[in-house]
Write a protein that binds this DNA or RNA. Structure first.
Lengths: 214, 214, 214, 214
DNA sequence: TATGAATGAGACTTCATTCAT
DNA sequence: AATGAATGAAGTCTCATTCAT
């Protein structure tokens, strides 16, 4: 039997050897590329293994409990990278509107640093999460829900502090998310896409939408 | 011989009997429901046939040239419905900002009238269009591109007329589209979703984003 | 129920109305064209119906007991035509070697008069007959066997009469048949095929092979 | 991932493990038997898998890129065997007529050694090659064309050297091929078929047809 | 720890055939 | 006598997953 039966894989997410961790990372990286390039539906283990330079799909099944597990890892990886990139940029800002701007702009800037990461995540989330069938999907949904809830809370807090005008925070957060994702998808297709310019434009749009009227 | 041979299927989209048209409509309706509920990947002929009360997937293959053909029909049907619903509401408005508001609000109102239609279309478009592999995908992509281009042109025109302030029209149109789609996806999952309220909120957001500063 | 149940179709091959006979002939003609053009495997009822200008495959099933029945009819039709064309030409000859030459040359000439007939028959015979599965196949086999046997008998007779030299008549007949069929197949593909020239050449070959040495 | 991804399958025909080669050979052998027995049309993956003692058709799809690939392998295998058997026998002869005789006789002798090989190849070639639809078919057609062209050239050379009399080399080669194939088909059906005798008879026939008159 | 091979469920599609009208 | 619609079996192919080595 493999080092970790599918049971244990679920129970003990940690405690991996260095080499195993490396393989997982390698596979996740390949998966991100393949998903971004071919879309979720065509991101088969076969293609991912080939991209990773692996000779068999068995390796993937060996390291991950299943496709859902791999996809969860893909999303987690992208979130980790996104957080590492965006958080310092957002936290460097002192005003609410500054943070909103930084959030939007750094999100799009991320697209230039890691062109495949966000498109891959958008693909996965729109295909796996949402529909609540099976554990992993629910896990995604809850994670996203939590992140969104935190953002909403932040916006509400800013509203109370008088930094933002009145509006429905939840709708605003969803709108911002949707607008960014739409640009991400666009970027994945349009080679001449200028992320910096688009980021500034989008930030401007939502700045006007949230700003208190003087 | 199928209702329409694969050759003729491409050549002569019209000329269907009443009963065949009815079956096609029934299948498309079932497909819309299944796609909205299970997502594009799990919207198999089997599930769609079962939902439509059909005894075999062969019936679907009999009436449609293939999965792509069915999906094209799904998108076309949703667009037909959406256009019938939104166009009069948008065209009833006389100002640019009124039209923008009507566009957004009627788009979300549509969600209440046909809760499955927009989610299904978003699913299909994000999975079939986009990556340009094969004729039908390209067809979608071009249709969407054209629609988007028209909207951009409309916005630019309004800007020139002084109805909207200065901003990048393309980014704005994409942002609006993305924001609406995000709410559509949200609505598909959240039973308590109030489309009217969300529509008003979203319209407000983009009204502020586009309005000339007084 | 149709005019003839599948049972009756087998039992009463005759007694058809004029119009029914016409339809059958039309379908057989279409089948011959399709088989010659696409090969046996791709000669589906759909293609045949389309070629015949029929709107449904049901018509074919209505007029023929099944695919095998249609194929039998195809072979019978080609044999009828071939016999009508070749027999007078063969019987006009008075010598054995003249008849052999006439047989070969008229067979290839037939290819020019009815370019689809022989290729179609070769297709059907090599795919349906031979393998003895089911009644119709056996029927074919026997019919061919009988025709071949008659030819062998004729050759033996000519040998006894001293018109032909000594050789195994059966092998000779099979060889002639095979050589002609190979040229038929060739003709079906090669647009510049000159049937008259090839016929003369082939007749010459087998004339030398059968002629008594002086 | 299959043993060879469809990409690699085309690119790297070699580089197979021993066990995979064995499976492929086993499947090809089963295919040859099934084709010879049931004909090309009924030689389905299901029947072939059953004959090979395999539990599912998936195994075949795993080892071959598709049905065309398997059929190509079948033809290649038969040609390999035929070449190995016939070439030494033909090349051992020093005269043109000796080589022709050896060609015909060894071809029929092969029928006794491997009774299913030639019938299977004839089946495949007459069904897959011929009509040029798709890459693999064209590949076959070209290979056969080349072989035939070489034979024609050889015959012409012998004619120039005065070994053969005057006749159209192309027609002669096609006739020989057709005659042999007809006997091959005959042999597949007739249990009492004596390949050696038939071979001698056929060789005699074409010897007389090609021999210079003294 | 990894892999090659196999598996088997399930997908789409094609086709001859049936049947009510 | 004909037709359009439907059927269902059968076919090829793809994949995630398993397992012995």
């Amino acid at each position: 039997m493999g080092a970790r039966s599918s049971k244990r894989k679920q129970e003990a997410p940690a405690g991996r050897t260095f080499i195993e961790e490396a393989r997982r990372a390698q596979i996740v990286a390949a998966a991100i590329e393949v998903i971004a390039e071919f879309g979720y539906a065509k991101a088969t283990f076969g293609r991912i293994a080939r991209r990773a330079g692996l000779s068999s799909t068995g390796v993937i099944s060996y390291h991950f409990a299943g496709k859902d597990d791999l996809m969860r890892e893909v999303v987690a990886e992208v979130m980790r990278v996104a957080d590492g990139y965006m958080r310092p940029r957002v936290e460097a800002e002192t005003t609410s509107s500054g943070r909103l701007r930084a959030f939007i702009e750094s999100n799009l800037a991320l697209l230039e640093e890691f062109p495949r990461h966000l498109p891959a995540m958008v693909e996965v989330l729109s295909n796996v999460a949402g529909r609540c069938q099976g554990e992993p999907a629910r896990e995604f949904a809850e994670a996203m829900e939590k992140a969104t809830a935190a953002q909403i809370e932040g916006v509400r807090h800013a509203q109370k502090a008088g930094d933002f005008r009145e509006f429905d925070a939840e709708t605003m957060v969803i709108a911002i998310r949707g607008a960014i994702d739409a640009l991400v998808v666009r970027a994945a297709r349009d080679p001449g896409f200028d992320a910096a310019v688009r980021g500034r434009e989008l930030a401007e749009i939502f700045d006007r939408a949230t700003r208190r009227t003087p």
